[in-house]
Design a protein around this nucleic acid. Structure first.
Length: 268
DNA sequence: AATGTGTTCAACCGCAGCTTC
DNA sequence: AGAAGCTGCGGTTGAACACAT
C-alpha cells in the first residue's frame, strides 16, 4: 500500500501551478468530471501526480469556492465546530461548502488559534465568553482521536457519530447565535464576499487568472445549464462510500441556508 | 532604501480507509 | 480472503508577501 506510485516517478513536476496547467486541468475536469484522478496526468499530459491534480482542483479550481476573508459567522462556526469535531477539517468544511478544508485548516492555524489563545489569556481562563475557546484544545484531541488522524471507528459507528456530530454542531450553532444574535437570520446573507481586489494582500496575477478560470466554469456549474457534466456528474463518479461526503461541486447554498439547515430541529 | 522578522497560504508528504481484482 | 491500487485526510513546509526597524 502506501504511497501511490506516481509520486515516486521522476519527472513529476512539483511546486506552484501555472495558469496553463490550471487550464489543462480545468478543461479536463470540465469534460470528464472530477474523479478518476489517476487518469488525469496521463490524459492531460500534465507532469503532475494524481494527488497534486486532485488537490489543485479541490482547493483552488473547483467552482463555488469562496476566497478572501472569513466572515464573523464563518469564523464562529469554525471555532465551534473545531471544538466539537476536533481537527477534522474535512468534516468542518462540509458545513462551509464554499470553503475548502485546506483553507479552514490554514485559517485556524494562522488566525483562530492565536485569537482563541488571546481570548483565553484575556479572560484569565475563566469566563469562556465563547464556550469553544476552552474546548478547542482538549476537546479537539478527545474527539479527533490520537494523532488527529481519522478516528478508528468501526463502520456504522462512524455514521452514527457523524449524526451525533451534526446534532452537536446544531446545538453549538444555536448557542453561538443566541449568545451573540447575528443579523443574518433575516438580513441578507453575509457570506457573499466579493473577489479579492487586485490590491488585496495575497492577491497575485496568478490567482486572478485561476479565478478567471473558475469563473469560466460558472455556467457549466449551474444546475440545469446546457453543459450537463457538472456537480451531478461528479457525485456519481466520486467514490461512493464515505458518509461524510462533501457537497463537492454542488452550487453552494447560501450561508443562511446552511444555518437554517443546522438549526432545523425537524431534521434528523 | 535596505535589511530583518513575522505572517500567510499553496502545495507536499505520509498515513489510513475503501474499492477493485 | 488477501493484496494492490486509488482516494481522501490532516500535518507540515517553504516561498512569497507584508510590516517593522
Amino acid at each position: 500500500m502506501g504511497r501511490p506510485p506516481c509520486c515516486d516517478k521522476v519527472g513529476v513536476k512539483k511546486g506552484p501551478w501555472t495558469p496553463e496547467e490550471d487550464l489543462m486541468l480545468v478543461s479536463y475536469v470540465q469534460e470528464h468530471g472530477p474523479g478518476n484522478w489517476r487518469a488525469v496526468p496521463t490524459n492531460t499530459g500534465l507532469m503532475r501526480c494524481s494527488k497534486s491534480c486532485r488537490l489543485r482542483w479541490t482547493n483552488y479550481l473547483r467552482p463555488g469556492i469562496k476566497r478572501g476573508n472569513f466572515t464573523d459567522q464563518e469564523e464562529k462556526l469554525i471555532i465551534h465546530l473545531q471544538a466539537l469535531l476536533g481537527n477534522r477539517w474535512a468534516a468542518i468544511a462540509s458545513y462551509l461548502p464554499e470553503r475548502t478544508d485546506n483553507d479552514i485548516k490554514n485559517y485556524w492555524n494562522t488566525h483562530l488559534k492565536k485569537k482563541l489563545k488571546k481570548m483565553q489569556a484575556g479572560e484569565g481562563g475563566g469566563g469562556d465568553g465563547d464556550g469553544a475557546a476552552g474546548a478547542s484544545e482538549g476537546g479537539a484531541v478527545a474527539t479527533a482521536g490520537a494523532g488527529g488522524k481519522r478516528p478508528a471507528v468501526p463502520k456504522g459507528q462512524w455514521e452514527r457519530r457523524l449524526q451525533t456530530d451534526i446534532h452537536t454542531a446544531r446545538q453549538a450553532l444555536r448557542d453561538a447565535l443566541s449568545l451573540e444574535p447575528s443579523p443574518s437570520a433575516s438580513a441578507p446573507p453575509p457570506a457573499k464576499v466579493e473577489p479579492l481586489p487586485a490590491t488585496a494582500p495575497g492577491y497575485t496575477t496568478y490567482a486572478s487568472s485561476a479565478e478567471n478560470i473558475a469563473r469560466l466554469l460558472e455556467g457549466w456549474l449551474r444546475p440545469g445549464s446546457g453543459g450537463g457534466k457538472g456537480p451531478e456528474a461528479s457525485g456519481s463518479t466520486s467514490t461512493t462510500a464515505t458518509t461524510q461526503q462533501r457537497p463537492q461541486c454542488a452550487a453552494p447554498p447560501a450561508f443562511s441556508m446552511l444555518e437554517s439547515w443546522l438549526l432545523d430541529d425537524g431534521m434528523g
